[in-house]
């Protein structure tokens, strides 16, 4: 088992390297950092532009492979290079990475836990009112893209706050920098509410649908009937025997759903004005910032593969057959 996980880890490291290289190549060949210096008045001398771009490893006159080699030799030592205006990508990433990770972590946990719980509940209550309403609402939610959902939430909260006459839920930015101590923490939690809802609602719907159908499969099987027949309470039989088995497919979907979650986080960050990695991706594409784009790609590759690894672990923990073979 440990060997299997180690091999997966090794494959994942290779995949991160390939994915990040691919993203760097794409960015380096399609983007034009020179544009930032063109059309200035007074015009910047070409030699000066070349020298600046060379210093940042962004010069499109250098062959791509050579730039790539420079970038790789930096990344291997943990240096992601310079942004389009000479700042350090590492510093910027250090500022932003926690913002994104917090959002992703909370969103993933809430999405997975609530989605699985709702799906299992609606399977147990098959064809009752609860099941139907969960089914219909998850269907509707899955048809609403994150950017529409986030905007709807913002409008709703705006009207709620106005109706109440005071600000109950804040949603612009990450926190209010003027507060400190406990107030600060509460304020951060307050700012987290809407982004978390907008990020996790889609995955709640997604997981609840998977979990419902898996749970229905399992509920009709002999081992659940046996568990009940041997005198276990219904709750224990459902949670320990049925849900545990039915969780396995949802756990394997975990890795797949994480990519969608990252895309969702980009919209959420941008709409709620969080300065995370996703927002950085959009900004850096618009600024032709090759190294920043590569860094964000690297980050997302690492995140997805960490999620994949986690889902392997989860499956191994749930499924004894995987542990044995």
């Amino acid at each position: 088992m440990g060997k299997y996980l180690l091999r997966r880890l090794a494959v994942n490291v290779i995949l991160v390297a390939v994915a990040a290289s691919l993203a760097y190549m794409l960015a380096a060949t399609t983007m034009n950092p020179r544009a930032a210096y063109e059309g200035r008045q007074p015009p910047v001398a070409e030699a000066v532009v070349d020298a600046t771009l060379d210093a940042y490893n962004l010069n499109d006159k250098t062959p791509v492979l050579q730039r790539y080699a420079t970038w790789v030799s930096g990344v291997v030592t943990g240096d992601f290079g310079k942004t389009w205006n000479g700042g350090s990508v590492n510093d910027e990433m250090g500022r932003r990475i926690m913002v994104s990770l917090r959002l992703l972590l909370v969103g993933t946990l809430v999405g997975f836990a609530l989605g699985v719980a709702l799906g299992a509940y609606s399977a147990v209550k098959q064809y009752r009112f609860a099941d139907r309403s969960i089914g219909v609402s998850s269907f509707v939610v899955m048809a609403i893209p994150v950017f529409v959902l986030a905007t709807l939430l913002a409008i709703g909260t705006y009207n709620l706050n106005r109706g109440l006459g005071f600000t109950l839920i804040e949603y612009t930015g990450e926190y209010n920098p003027r507060l400190s101590g406990w107030d600060q923490l509460l304020n951060r939690l307050n700012h987290l509410i809407l982004p978390t809802i907008s990020l996790s609602l889609g995955s709640i719907a997604f997981y609840s649908r998977i979990q419902r159908s898996m749970m229905l499969d399992v509920l009709n099987q002999d081992f659940v009937r046996t568990a009940m027949a041997k005198g276990l309470r219904r709750r224990t039989a459902l949670l320990k025997h049925a849900l545990r088995t039915a969780l396995i497919p949802a756990a394997t979907y975990f890795a797949f759903a994480f990519g969608t979650m990252l895309t969702g986080a980009t919209f959420t960050e941008k709409i709620f004005a969080w300065h995370g990695m996703g927002a950085w991706l959009i900004d850096s594409i618009q600024q032709n910032d090759v190294n920043a784009v590569a860094a964000v790609s690297f980050f997302s590759a690492v995140c997805v593969l960490a999620a994949a690894f986690l889902s392997d672990l989860l499956v191994a923990a749930l499924d004894p057959r995987v542990r044995v073979s």
Partner: peptide, 19 residues
């Protein structure tokens, strides 16, 4: 397929799109 799973397609298309 594995690569696509690692790099969300949104990211790749967004990178290429300025072209």
């Amino acid at each position: 397929v594995d690569l696509l799973l690692v790099l969300p397609s949104f990211l790749i298309i967004a990178i290429v799109s300025p072209r």
